[in-house]
Design a protein around this nucleic acid. Structure first.
Length: 107
DNA sequence: CTCTTGACCGACG
DNA sequence: CCGTCGGCCAAGA
């Protein structure tokens, strides 16, 4: 069972439109949190095993880095995440999102 | 309740 | 560009 906090995070993830991405920080802000809120967001997504029902692959770090996927900061899953993003029109180079500012979706 | 850890961020040198 | 430090959220032990 997910915690209420996790539910909020997942709900926001679903709101992200196709071809757009968001960041841990923006999600945290949207939740009304401040400071280290994005760290808690990261934990929530890590606990998310039902991907891609929840499009957590559209959530990246604030600097445009991919971040992590399926509980890993690097590995096969990350490649999968990149592929999914590129399928949706978000180009990724060297684990960073191209035109990140343009693709960034704010709530 | 206390302590640790995490898919993080921003500032500084 | 890279390593280091401060910050101060949520969940689990």
């Amino acid at each position: 069972m997910p915690t209420p906090f996790q539910n909020r995070v997942y709900a926001l993830c679903k709101k992200i439109p196709r071809g757009k991405v968001s960041t841990y920080k923006e999600i945290g802000k949207a939740l009304g949190g401040r400071g280290q809120i994005y760290r808690a967001v990261g934990m929530a997504l890590k606990n998310n095993t039902h991907a891609p029902v929840v499009p957590c692959h559209r959530v990246v770090a604030s600097n445009g880095a991919i971040g992590g996927y399926h509980g890993s900061t690097r590995g096969t899953f990350i490649e999968k995440k990149i592929k999914l993003l590129q399928q949706e029109g978000v180009l990724v180079k060297d684990n960073k999102i191209i035109h990140f500012k343009k693709k960034l979706y704010r709530f």
